[in-house]
Simulated assay, not measured.
Amino acid sequence: MRIELVRVTHKRTRAWQLFLRTLTLPILAALTPSSIEVKITDERTESIDYESDADLIGLTFLTADAHRAYRIADEFRKRSKFVVMGGPHASILPEEAIRHADSVVIGEAELVWKDLLQDFQKGSLKKFYQSKTPVKMEDLPLPRRNLVKCKGFTTIEMVETSRGCPFNCDFCYMPTLFGRSYRLRPIEDVIKEIKTLKKDHLAFADDNLVGNPDYAKNLFKK
């Protein structure tokens, strides 16, 4: 079985504007059984191959990219490909997204990803998947960064230390999607992952890196 995970964008970004590689898809790749072949495509630097030999296509996207994602999904489905959608927009508007997909992951995908893949292999893919509990930050696997091409990115490596935000800003999707939960990853795990990186510079992928000032200070001191 083959799957292709795609980070969608509505326009190709200029090289000097590209700072951050995707982190979500390499994490899902790390949670995928070794018997399944995984390919990651980031549309910011690569073109989508609609003749892909993947059995399942996974799309993640923001609201600005939603119409583009729907067109991509429709093209794949015309070719009899199964499409799964996730990300902030699909999570907040799953009933809209499902009109263009075979399944939608609502919220965090880590705890439902293996079930989704098993259901797909059995021919019993559900329309919606949603974890009943938040992901425990100490359970995060090392992302399969080798599946994402480095070319075109200013900052190649990204590391996640927390998820969520303790605040309730009305302009942000975070409270709607996750409430005001704020989960911290063990600092020892963060340092261990940083030591595996091949580059000297990195970026943090947190929703709010300093939501807990004491934690942030301890992390930076390390």
Rank of each mutant, 00 (worst) to 15 (best):
A97L: 05
S162V: 06
K198N: 13
G107M: 01
Y182L: 13
K126T: 00
E157Y: 03
D139Q: 13
P143D: 06
K78W: 12
I3Q: 05
R163P: 01
H67A: 15
S131V: 02
S80G: 10
Y215F: 13
F167C: 11
A97N: 01
D170H: 13
E96C: 07
T60R: 03
H89F: 10
L25C: 04
K149A: 12
P134V: 08
S35M: 03
F204E: 06
E51D: 15
H100P: 11
M174F: 02
P186N: 09
D115W: 00
T154M: 11
L62W: 10
T176F: 12
A15R: 15
L147I: 09
K132G: 06
E157R: 14
V135N: 04
Y173S: 14
I106V: 14
R12C: 07
F167V: 12
Y50V: 06
K136C: 10
H100W: 06
P33R: 08
D170T: 12
G87M: 07
P26W: 02
C150Q: 14
P175E: 08
L23N: 03
A73P: 04
K78V: 07
T24D: 09
F76C: 11
E46W: 06
K78Y: 10
F204D: 10
T13Y: 14
A15I: 14
L197W: 03
Y215G: 02
E138N: 15
A109I: 04
R44P: 03
L140A: 10
V135I: 14
E96R: 08
K198P: 07
E4K: 08
F171M: 09
K221T: 11
V148P: 02
H201G: 12
H67N: 15
H10C: 11
L140Q: 06
P94F: 01
W113A: 00
D53G: 12
E95C: 05
A15L: 14
D207K: 09
T155N: 14
L147E: 09
G86H: 00
S103T: 01
F178I: 10
T9H: 09
H10M: 05
S91C: 11
L184S: 07
Y215R: 07
K199A: 09
